[in-house]
Amino acid sequence: MTTSAQPIPSGFRAPDGMRIYAVGDIHGRADLLQEKLAAIEAHHAAHPGVDALRVFVGDYIDRGADSCGVVEMLIELGRRERCVFLRGNHEAYVLDFPHNPKIMTAWRTLGGIETLASYGIAASPEPDPAESLELANAFERSLPESHRVFYRDLLLSYEAGGLYFVHAGVRPGIPLAAQSVADRTWIRHEFLNHEGLFEKLIIHGHTPATEPEIRPNRINIDTRAFASGRLTCIWLEGGNFGFV
């Protein structure tokens, strides 16, 4: 279902001639992603006449049952449609784990066991250092090269017109062009509690909410899909937005 169009907060605008579809944190829910991609296709077919760009704000993996399937689906989508894939904080674990098995202690609490299972690697609930090393080696062998490239090439942020897409948010008082990797993938309270406008409207995920949060300076599209069953997609075109 698509809400009726509303003005983009604070007068920010999407680039002319473009409709942007931005999808929130997926967290291994390939079933929800498949449904949402079909809904985006239907929405775009019903409202033709502009180019479509699909932006995904990160956290494709962990928690849900099919992280591998999510990544495979996104890779295939990127081959036929114009897409931007951003890096979330969870993707950092995938990039680091083969070279730093010690992070399994933290990663398992965030859904790393489920991600490994989706790649065909079984792990105990609390792997010790020896098992973590075995898991890291198995993951390195099992990870398809196309997935390795996908994780490696994820962007930290994306700007389009008056819109700035990022996983977690930005640090107030710092120009958007100077934002750190850590803040763009991890920041919460300093960003969420800031009431002033930024250079652009920030579209982000990372912090789960029951409903999309619409503020004068930001829109949060993380609706805890892995647990709630609600994967949020916002569309933005000209000076308006709505939800698919």
Rank of each mutant, 00 (worst) to 15 (best):
M1F: 08
T2W: 01
S4E: 14
S4Y: 01
A5I: 01
P7R: 10
P9V: 02
S10T: 11
A14E: 10
P15M: 02
D16P: 02
D16W: 03
A22N: 04
V23L: 07
G24Q: 02
R29P: 05
A30H: 10
L32I: 00
L33R: 12
E35Y: 00
E35C: 00
K36V: 02
A42S: 13
H43A: 05
H43G: 04
H44L: 02
A45G: 10
A46E: 12
P48C: 06
G49D: 01
D51E: 15
A52E: 15
A52C: 07
R54L: 10
V55E: 08
F56T: 04
F56S: 02
G58F: 02
I61K: 00
D62I: 07
R63H: 00
R63D: 02
G64E: 07
G64K: 10
G64W: 09
A65S: 12
D66E: 09
S67D: 05
S67T: 13
C68Y: 12
M73H: 11
I75N: 08
I75S: 01
G78W: 08
R80Q: 12
R82S: 13
R87Q: 15
G88M: 06
H90T: 01
A92D: 13
F97T: 09
F97L: 15
P98C: 04
H99R: 14
N100T: 14
P101V: 06
K102E: 15
K102A: 15
I103D: 04
T105R: 14
W107I: 07
T109M: 05
T109P: 00
L110S: 07
G112C: 06
E114P: 08
E114I: 04
T115N: 04
T115W: 03
A117W: 06
Y119W: 11
Y119N: 02
G120S: 09
G120R: 11
I121W: 09
A122F: 00
A122H: 01
P125L: 08
P127K: 08
P129H: 11
A130D: 14
A130F: 05
S132D: 03
S132P: 00
S132K: 07
L133S: 12
L133F: 09
E134Q: 12
E134G: 04
E134T: 01
A138W: 05
P144G: 05
P144S: 06
E145T: 14
V149F: 12
V149L: 15
Y151W: 12
R152H: 15
E159T: 14
G162L: 03
G162K: 10
G162E: 05
L163R: 03
F165A: 01
F165I: 00
G169C: 08
V170W: 08
P172D: 13
P172R: 13
P172V: 07
I174R: 13
L176F: 10
A178L: 14
A182V: 12
D183F: 06
D183T: 06
T185N: 10
I187Q: 08
H194V: 05
H194L: 06
I202S: 10
H204I: 08
H204F: 08
H206Q: 04
T207N: 03
A209S: 13
T210F: 03
T210D: 14
E211V: 13
E213Y: 05
P216I: 14
N217W: 00
R218T: 04
D222I: 12
D222Y: 05
R224A: 06
R224Q: 03
S228Q: 03
R230H: 11
I234L: 15
I234W: 02
W235M: 00
E237L: 03
E237F: 01
G239F: 07
N240R: 11
N240K: 10
F243Y: 11
